[in-house]
């Protein structure tokens, strides 16, 4: 199923780039229900729908809606399903998308549920790795905040399907949760943990960097020390494999030196673009326009 979505995304890439015109989803309406701020997810879903000839409706501001009057999510979904052919939901509570699907007769796509999952991000991360490197047996390092970052949690499980070798690089305060490590080991995935980026940089095909949030550290000096120790610089990359690709879900603050943007290793802006063909594939498949 995952491979089918990735293959479909690749076929739709010329449309995502505006090189071909499509009316695949003409007459279809996508409802974006975003209860939390979002830039890339919301905009790439909008772009995906418009590129395929469909239309997009928005919830607008939560403060000016019926939700502010105390309406339940279940009731909002029951109403909105009458207006749209599919719903994308971002909500602060874990499990919200699954619950919404119980009340909806139209497909609900999880656009991020609290600290839970962000599956379309995972699909676009997999797509990026397959387009820019290779998925089967890839050597991947995940660096940064591995404790709270939901993108790396979901990505780990997805990578386990492709027999990846995963190295977790983080300060001890932000280690990957133990239950995820034990799940991966149970799945026979090779997992290493370290706090040194220098140790692994010469031995990986993909380096996936996540943002370390300042508020996770009570002491600003400690934050600065940790953030600096994991910063990706051109000097660090002198020891990298030539084919190394660097990914980041964005926004980045200072974890990747801007000089890295001009090296062949940087692929985070293309990664962001890949969100469009991947979401086009998902929309086409859930709306039954493609099989």
């Amino acid at each position: 199923m995952i491979d089918h979505i990735l293959n479909t995304a690749e076929k739709l890439e010329p449309i995502a780039r505006g090189k071909e015109i499509s009316t695949l989803l003409a007459g279809k309406v996508l409802m974006l229900l975003f209860f939390e701020p979002s830039t890339r997810t919301r905009m790439s879903f909008e772009t995906a729908m418009i590129r395929l000839g469909g239309s997009v409706m928005n919830l607008g501001s939560v403060e000016a809606s019926s939700i502010a009057k105390g309406e339940t999510l279940a009731d909002t979904i029951r109403v909105v399903e009458g207006y749209a052919d599919a719903i994308v939901l971002r909500h602060p509570k874990e499990g919200s998308a699954r619950m919404a699907s119980e009340f909806s007769s139209v497909p609900v796509i999880n656009g991020g549920d609290g600290a839970g999952h962000h599956p379309t991000q995972t699909f676009l991360d997999l797509y990026t790795i397959s387009r820019e490197s290779h998925l089967e047996g890839a050597k991947i390092a995940l660096a940064g905040d591995l404790k709270y970052g939901r993108t790396v949690h979901s990505l780990c499980y997805a990578l386990s399907l492709y027999g990846a070798e995963i190295t977790m690089v983080s300060p001890k305060e932000l280690r990957m949760p133990a239950e995820i490590i034990s799940d991966l080991k149970r799945l026979d995935i090779k997992v290493k943990q370290t706090d040194s980026i220098e140790e692994v940089i010469g031995d990986v095909d993909v380096l996936y960097v996540t943002r370390i949030q300042k508020e996770r550290f009570p002491d600003p000096d400690e934050y600065h020390k940790v953030a600096t120790s994991l910063q990706i610089t051109p000097e660090l990359l002198e020891n990298a494999r030539p084919q190394l690709k660097i990914m980041h879900p964005l926004p980045r603050i200072n974890e990747i030196d801007p000089r890295v943007d001009y090296t062949p290793h940087a692929c985070y802006y293309r990664q962001s673009f890949y969100g469009v063909p991947v979401r086009m594939a998902l929309l086409s498949l859930v709306l039954g326009a493609l099989e």
Binding site: T72, L73, A74, H91, P92, K93, E94, G95, S96, R98, M99, D113, G114, A115
Partner: peptide
Amino acid sequence: NCISNTME
């Protein structure tokens, strides 16, 4: 923070 622990 689970949706099942709300007024839903």
